[in-house]
Design a protein around this nucleic acid. Structure first.
Length: 350
DNA sequence: CAACCGTGGGA
DNA sequence: TTCCCAAGGTT
């Protein structure tokens, strides 16, 4: 039997029952694909339900304030996905007459949609014969065909793309693409792949040459930089003070409490001598109520070491008033905040 | 094109 | 604890 038929047969018998299956509305597929980028199904599925409920179509998303979209995305990570979706929803309304483009060559022009997502939408929704090549496909192809090439380099990518184009079934590209990805997710997994149950184990080059654990070839891990955050949790009656992160940095457009960041670890005394601390608390009769332990927050490429300084004040000064947003303790739940701060606010023990 | 951009779960 | 990494895209 042809490779694609084996994968599709396996898929028809073993696929997970997921809410975006059997749907060919490009908006729905788009939302699900963006949510699932670098994200496991279990982690993203509730975000998917909430997103579709709050924004059931392109127009509702395009008309929403970006702050609301980011609030919905809070905790899911990679927030550029939400910013780009919002941007692209507006693009589709204004430049595509509200209609999702229906060819790969047009879909890929949209912000936040790269080769993988464009191929997924084009093949799932419009049955265009373009191969999806995601982490699952790289893994399966490299093992099954014994490809010892890096997936990150241009030459390596081309090799995998050629293979993916060779094995796709042009009469049913959508099913083929979903089948090969599901196969990688359930059988040809990164660790401890289920080779015993694999319908292709006789022909798998990696398995027959004891290379399953070596493939796919992966590049060296990136260096993790350490950052030291000192958040100032200012209590004024029933209010706290927040600001939006506008710099080109992590958590862009999310909200946070006033922050003193240092390159190296510093003591409480040094924090209190910091110019920002002085400006924040001038003429406020400030009292430090509590200083949290160090809270480590691991990102993909950074390690945040955070302390939270809870400070009560009796008066507001002009700097606080002009540079920060005063919100009540209940209003803060309307703002999208990083997981780190969310955990702090919801954990009385820190 | 290498670096950047989150989070949580499992080994 | 530490490491890996999951349906990637942008710059």
């Amino acid at each position: 039997m042809i490779l694609s038929n084996i994968l599709i047969n396996w898929y028809n018998q073993n696929k997970r029952d997921l809410p975006w299956r059997e749907i060919n509305d490009p908006y729905i597929i788009w939302v699900s694909e963006i949510i699932l980028q670098q994200t496991r199904v279990n982690q993203g599925i509730n975000y998917y339900y909430r997103f579709i409920e709050q924004y059931p179509d392109i127009k509702s998303l395009a008309n929403a304030p970006i702050d609301d979209v980011l609030k919905l995305w809070q905790g899911l990570g990679y927030y550029s996905r939400a910013r780009n979706m919002h941007h692209t929803a507006k693009t589709i309304i204004h430049e595509y007459n509200g209609k999702f483009p229906n060819h790969y060559s047009e879909i890929i022009k949209l912000k936040g949609i790269g080769e993988y997502t464009a191929a997924a939408i084009a093949s799932f929704c419009f049955n265009e014969s373009v191969p999806v090549i995601d982490g699952n496909v790289y893994r399966f192809l490299s093992r099954f065909f014994g490809i010892k090439e890096l997936t990150a380099t241009a030459s390596g990518k081309q090799i995998f793309k050629n293979l993916a184009e060779e094995i796709i079934d042009p009469t049913m590209p959508g099913i083929h693409n979903q089948a090969i990805m599901e196969f990688g997710a359930l059988i040809c997994t990164p660790q401890n792949p289920n080779c015993m149950q694999c319908p292709l184990n006789k022909q798998c080059i990696a398995l027959n040459n004891d290379l399953v654990d070596e493939l796919p070839l992966k590049k060296k891990k990136i260096k993790i930089t350490k950052r030291y955050f000192h958040y100032i949790h200012i209590i004024y009656k029933e209010n706290v003070f927040i600001e939006q992160r506008i710099k080109n940095d992590i958590w862009q457009l999310l909200y946070q409490m006033p922050l003193i960041e240092t390159k190296n670890k510093i003591s409480t005394e040094e924090v209190i001598k910091h110019p920002l601390w002085t400006k924040l608390f001038e003429n406020t009769n400030a009292k430090i109520i509590h200083i949290s332990n160090n809270i480590k927050h691991q990102l993909s490429h950074q390690q945040i070491n955070a302390h939270f300084y809870k400070v009560q004040i009796d008066k507001i000064n002009p700097f606080l008033k002009s540079d920060f947003i005063m919100v009540t303790n209940s209003e803060i739940s309307k703002y999208g905040i990083p997981r780190l701060i969310d955990k702090y606010l919801n954990n009385p023990f820190h």
